[in-house]
Design a protein around this nucleic acid. Sequence first.
DNA 1: TCCACTATTTATCAATTGAAAAATAAGCTG
DNA 2: CAGCTTATTTTTCAATTGATAAATAGTGGA
Lengths: 210, 210
Amino acid sequence: MPHKSVRQRLPYDERREQFVEKAVQFFAREGFESSTRDLARSLGVTQPLLYRYFPSKEDLIREVYEAVYLQRWRDEWNDLLIDRSKSVTDRLNLFYTQYTDVIFRDDWMRIFLFSGLKGIGLNREYLLFIRQNLIEVITREILAEHHVDQMPLSDDEIEFGWTIHGGIFYYGVRLLIYNMAVHPDKSFVIENSIQAWTHQLVAIRKHNLN
Amino acid sequence: MPHKSVRQRLPYDERREQFVEKAVQFFAREGFESSTRDLARSLGVTQPLLYRYFPSKEDLIREVYEAVYLQRWRDEWNDLLIDRSKSVTDRLNLFYTQYTDVIFRDDWMRIFLFSGLKGIGLNREYLLFIRQNLIEVITREILAEHHVDQMPLSDDEIEFGWTIHGGIFYYGVRLLIYNMAVHPDKSFVIENSIQAWTHQLVAIRKHNLN
DNA sequence: TCCACTATTTATCAATTGAAAAATAAGCTG
DNA sequence: CAGCTTATTTTTCAATTGATAAATAGTGGA
């Protein structure tokens, strides 16, 4: 009974997608310094096959970044955040619940941190995106709801938004990177962060009005 | 004119200390996957010399962790945080100013994140230490100052402490890992975080008293 | 059924890696 | 100055790495 070398032959596009998808999980687990041989093994193919689809390891990694960062933001979130038929608190609760469902995953978190340490440009671009589409929008909406939106946003107010956002993000880091025993209820963290955000932000603005 | 091979001969302990110290900076800059040859070059010695002082690269890295984590906490901070001759706000301001002076450095931040991603045990130990010596202590002190310290600390209250602490920590991540344009005034972040901490913590306790 | 195309594997290379063994030289002690 | 100790370098190895070239085998079309 000869061992048939089961050679799975897939269409180009299908194989390529499969590679990127699995590479996300693999590199998140093992880090980007892991070998292409190990990656190929976890894919059930031989290592040179990777080079039919990606000219170099670096190119593959770039595709991994793009798959993680750029393809997981939902455009509907932009609309949700400025939907004034809901209270800001409701909007923020809804948004952060969904957003953390997406980013509080092992692959997202680890690749975000791995790529940050490697000094990848995509990382800074993503954070710039977050600033413009999250921090600034939310800050504006909170101030509007409290009728203190006569003046443009200040650096102080933006910075405090980052601080709160970072607090929520850090919950994911403790949970997924450090495997700590965090509060079992994610919504507790979100609700309190939002409450602190609105309260403290209004205090900052009123303080700076003088 | 022959090129004299300047062979610097140092006492064992001195050379060893030098190696660990410089290795901290090197690995923070280049990551732990960098070669021992590059490290040796940056030290001005040959690569096999490292193996006279550390049995393996892994052992050297472990010493780097210890140098970064364990040797930078100041015992006086434990006293400062419970010094009730000062207000909690003053204590926290003072503490976080000094603490962030220590950890908001390229080597500390990057090694903390690198080692976290590699799943090193030391990392979790450090966070346990932070919980006991920071989060819990601070939470207790805030509640005492507001005369609502009749009941023991709850998970809710601890978790919120982590959220605020994480917000401050994230400022360092944005500054040193992502090289972003953060608020130029570190003390602004600290002051607002402390204010949000005390305010929201008391709110949580009062809410849970019902 | 045969052929052409190409997805996949086998075989291989040069560079880099962590690590060990052997050779050398600095510096102390007498 | 002789001689011993050991810090440091030179030499070398086997394993692993990213990557390429050649060989092989599925698959669809004529």
